[in-house]
Each structure stands twice: as C-alpha cells, then as structure tokens.
Design a protein around this nucleic acid. Structure first.
Length: 273
DNA sequence: CCAGTATCCTGCAGGC
DNA sequence: TGCCTGCAGGATACTG
C-alpha cells in the first residue's frame, strides 16, 4: 500500500508525536512476516530506550534508539502505524504494541503481513542486504542526472524499471503510473529505446509527483495528531492510476490498462508514446 | 547479469 | 444470501 510519500508522511507524524519519548514496554505475539516478528527479543531489548527522530530510506522507516540500535520497519502492502491511548480497542491484525512513557502506544497493524518490524543492533543497518541494495533516493538532488542512464541501460519496460527499488527507491505502482502519464511515455516502452531527453523528463515527473504527494500528506498531518488517529494514507489527485476506461484528463480519450511489471497499469494510448 | 513469473497473506468487490 | 474468483499501494526466490 504505502509508497514513498505515505512512508514520509508517517515519518513526519512519528517525529512530531514520538521523538524523545521513552519505551516503557512491548506487547505482541511472534509471527511470520516478511521478516519474522520477534516479540521476545523486542521486549528484552527495547524498554528504557529513547526514540530519536525517525529517518526514511525509500519505503523503509528507521527509528534510531538512544543510546544505540534502531527499529527497522517496512509497511508492505497493508501495514499501518498508529498512535493510540493505552485503552484503545485493538484493531484486528495488530501484531506489535510498543508502550510509551506517556501512556500512549505505538501499534503496528498489518493484515497481509508483507511488512515487518525488526530491531537492528548497532552496525546492522550498514550491512542490511535490503537497505544496502537500494537505489537513488528520488527526492535528493541529482535524480534527473543519475536515473536516465540507468534506465537507458536496460531493455525492460520503463514501468518495470521504475518499480525496481535497486534503481530508484520509493516508487510503487501508483506513482510509477502517474509519472509515466505525466511524462507522456508508454509504460511498456523499453528503457533502452527511450531517448535520454524523455527519460530526463520522466525523472523530473517522478520527483514532482512524489514531492507533491509528500506536500499534500504533510498539510494534513496536524489533523492526525489525535491519539486515536491513523496516519500516512493520502493520495494526490490521481490522473491515471485506477482510471482505466475513464477519459484521459489531457486528451479525453479512454485510458486502458495492461499488466506491466506484474501489476495493473493504466495509461493513455493517445498521449503516451 | 537480466527479464519475467510465482509466492507469501488477508480482505473485499463483483459475478453468478 | 452465499460462494467463488480475482485483485490489492511490495519484495524476493526462482526460472530460463
């Protein structure tokens, strides 16, 4: 479910709500997730540690712990982090509850269990295989210079390449579809058969759509500061994603949908070449 | 190395 | 109403 903008919105909310708080306790049940949820380990290690300002890398969330260690989180398709009062009713599929020193709780809910929450011992972040394989951070400077040659070197559909976290980190199906529509590029077009100029435009649109979504999520953060609130699930006005069969907002023709990169991809046959 | 597919899991919408 | 199928914002193991 969450892509870079949603994860960044969660990060900002956690920064506002959790920074400086101390962990009082841990509850949950160890289960299989994308990485095993090890509640006993978390309960042994976390109490007494302070939560620092969270960081984001691609779709991963890192919460540094003071004096050492960190929590590594990925929300997968269906993951949510919520901050609640201690007595709040438990949502189904709440796998982990982290009790805070002010009586509130940080809860990790994930029905499909494609996400994970893991304790990183000191030094583990630097050698984590998933983190170290991540590609360009798209909101950092230089995307328009760095990404095009990487795409040009590959024959796969540009859509598939945008979803490849080893190339650019944080783009998921929604924002890949939106960026391609904005750039006027056919999703199935091979990277190698797309001009550097058009790939540069694509990189610009990737950055733009992500930045706009972050901005929109950010504007609503304050509404989500209430203890019972969920946060991080906002989407900008979507021009293409999910709009197959509906008129293209640029030319009026009908959008169609194909499966590209294993996922449904809406696009405009007239505007996207 | 690269490209494409299968797979993990639950919930829900839509068809019959 | 109830059952069945397919699909969902992700990442990775595996195949050719």
């Amino acid at each position: 479910m969450p892509e870079l903008p949603e994860v960044e919105t969660v990060r900002r909310a956690l920064e506002l709500e959790l920074s400086g708080r101390r962990i009082a306790g841990v509850r949950g049940r160890s289960i299989a997730m994308r990485r095993p949820l090890e509640v006993e380990k978390l309960a042994a290690v976390l109490p007494g540690l302070e939560l620092a300002t969270p960081r984001r890398r691609g779709k991963y969330l890192l919460i540094d712990l003071v004096p050492q260690g960190a929590l590594l989180n990925h929300l997968g398709m269906s993951g949510r982090l919520t901050i609640t009062g201690a007595g709040a009713p438990l949502l189904p599929h709440t796998h982990l509850t982290i009790e805070l020193d002010d009586g509130r709780e940080l809860r990790f809910v994930d029905p499909r269990r494609f996400g994970f929450m893991q304790w990183l011992e000191p030094g583990a972040e630097e050698v984590d295989p998933s983190l170290s394989a991540l590609g360009i951070e798209p909101l950092d400077p230089g995307l328009e210079e760095k990404l095009p040659p990487l795409l040009k070197a590959r024959r796969a559909p540009v859509k598939s390449l945008l979803l490849d976290q080893h190339l650019v980190a944080g783009v998921g199906n929604i924002y890949a579809v939106e960026a391609l529509w904005r750039a006027g590029i056919r999703p199935a077009r091979p990277g190698s058969r797309t001009s550097i100029d058009r790939l540069t435009r694509l990189a610009f649109e990737v950055r733009s759509v992500l930045a706009e979504a972050v901005e929109q999520g950010g504007t609503t953060i304050r509404d989500y500061a209430s203890p019972e609130g969920n946060f991080g699930y906002f989407a900008i006005q979507l021009a293409a994603y999910g709009r197959q069969g509906q008129p293209c907002l640029r030319c009026g023709g009908a959008l169609r949908a194909d499966v590209i990169g294993g996922r449904t991809t809406a696009w405009c046959p007239a505007c996207q070449r």
